[in-house]
Design a protein around this nucleic acid. Structure first.
Lengths: 208, 208
DNA sequence: ATTATAGGCTAATTGCAATTAGCCGTCAAG
DNA sequence: CTTGACGGCTAATTGCAATTAGCCTATAAT
C-alpha cells in the first residue's frame, strides 16, 4: 500500500481511538514510519487527512450499502432464501451479520470515528444516521417485507417489525464497540433475541 | 448558582457539544463570565473540571437510577400500576420517559459528553454502558417481570422482552441526540413500537 | 478598624503541536 | 547522463492554549 493510503489508514485507526483533536500529526507520521513534515508532501494539512477519510468512505458508500447487509443486494432473492431458513440458519445469518459489523476493521474503525465526531457537524451526524440507522432499516425492511409477503413471518407493520429486529442488534453493536470484553455475552443475547423474534412474528402465532 | 458550580455547568454544555479536547478553558471562562486564569481559583486545571463533572454525576447515580425510570423505585408497586394501564396510558408513559431522556438538560448533556468521550478510557466506557444499557434493562426488566407475573403480559424470556422494549427506545434516543430535527418522527415510531410491543407480548396472544 | 481570604484581573510564561523552509537522495523520462 | 519531481529529513517558526505570577478589591470575621 502506498504512503498516501497508509496515512489514511493509520489516521483512521487513531481517530477512531482518540478522536480527531487528540491525535497529533506526529502520531500519524510515527505509525506510518515517516516524520511529521513528510505528511505534508501528501496532504495539505491535518484537516485534509480527515476529509480524505470521509471522502474515501463516500466512495465506498455503494459497496458499503450492500456489505452492510451481507446477504446481497436483491431483497427479493434474499427473501426467497430467507423464507426457507430454519431458526438455526437464521441465527447463523444474524451472527455473520453481527460479526461483520463488529470485526470488519474498516467498518468498525469508521463507525467508532463517526461516533466520536458525530456532534461536530451536521453532515457527520447525517452520515452516521444514514449508515447505521436508516440504511439497515431500509434494507432489512425490504427483506422482511418479502418474507412477510411470502408467508414466512406475519405482522401488521413491517417497519416496526424491522425495528424490533434491528434495534437490539444496534444496541449490542454499540455496546461491543465500547466494551469488547462483553462480546461473548452479546452473542448469547443476540441468539436469544433472534429466537424470540422468530417466535413472536411467526405466522404460527395468531390472535385468539 | 455559585461560580464553582456554574463552571461545571458551562463546561458540561461545551464538552457535550465539542468534546473535551475541543473546548478551551477560555471558552468555559467566557461562558461563565470571568477570565480564564480565574478558573484556576476554583479548579486545579482543565482535567479537574472534567473529573468534577464525572464525580458530580457519580453523586447523582442513585437519583439518576430512579429518574432514569421515572416511574419510581419500587418495581412491584410500579407493576401494579402498569398492569392496569390501557395501551394509551402505556404510550403516555413511554412518551414521558422518552421526553425525560431527550429533554432533561443535565441528562442529555451528560449523555452526549459520554458518547463523545466513551472511547478515551475504560471507566467512561463502563459508565456509559451502565447508565444507558445495563441500568435501564435491569430496572425495566424487574418492572416487566412483575407485569408478566401478574398476568398483564406473557413471555418465555423476560430479559429479551425487556430488550425488545428498550432497544428501540435507545436507538431512537441516540438518533435524536444527533438529529434533533427528527424528534417528531421518533415520537411517531415510538408510539407504533409500543402498540406493537403490547400486541406481541399480550397474554391474549398465544401459540396455536 | 484591621486583616485575611476569596475571587477577580492583566500580563507574562511555558509548552506543545502544526506547519514551513530548505536540503538531499533516488529514479524514471528524455 | 542529466534533470526534475517525488518523497523523505532536520531544523526552524508560528501560533495557540494552558497555566503561573503577581496585583487588586470586597467582604466577613476578629
Amino acid at each position: 500500500m502506498d504512503t498516501k493510503q497508509r496515512i489514511l489508514d493509520e489516521a483512521l485507526t487513531l481517530f477512531s481511538q482518540k478522536g480527531y483533536a487528540n491525535v497529533y500529526v506526529n502520531d500519524i507520521a510515527e505509525k506510518v514510519g515517516i516524520k511529521a513534515p513528510s505528511l505534508y508532501k501528501h496532504y495539505k494539512n491535518k484537516k485534509a487527512i480527515f476529509d480524505a477519510i470521509i471522502e474515501e468512505m463516500n466512495n465506498r458508500f455503494a459497496i458499503q450499502a450492500k456489505n452492510l447487509n451481507i446477504i446481497g443486494n436483491d431483497p427479493a432473492a434474499d427473501a426467497r432464501i430467507y423464507e426457507s431458513l430454519s431458526e438455526e440458519e437464521m441465527i447463523k445469518l444474524g451472527f455473520d451479520l453481527f460479526e461483520y459489523y463488529i470485526h470488519d476493521d474498516y467498518v468498525k474503525r469508521f463507525r467508532k470515528m463517526l461516533t466520536i465526531e458525530q456532534f461536530h457537524n451536521k453532515e457527520l451526524a447525517d452520515t452516521y444516521t444514514k449508515l447505521y440507522v436508516d440504511d439497515p432499516l431500509l434494507y432489512q425492511g425490504l427483506l422482511l417485507g418479502q418474507v412477510v409477503s411470502s408467508g414466512g413471518l406475519s405482522t401488521e407493520n413491517v417497519d416496526i417489525m424491522t425495528l424490533h429486529f434491528f434495534a437490539p442488534i444496534y444496541m449490542l453493536l454499540t455496546m461491543c464497540d465500547r466494551n469488547p470484553e462483553r462480546e461473548p455475552e452479546a452473542f448469547k443475547i443476540l441468539e436469544s433475541h433472534i429466537r424470540q423474534f422468530n417466535k413472536l412474528y411467526s405466522r404460527k402465532r395468531k390472535e385468539v
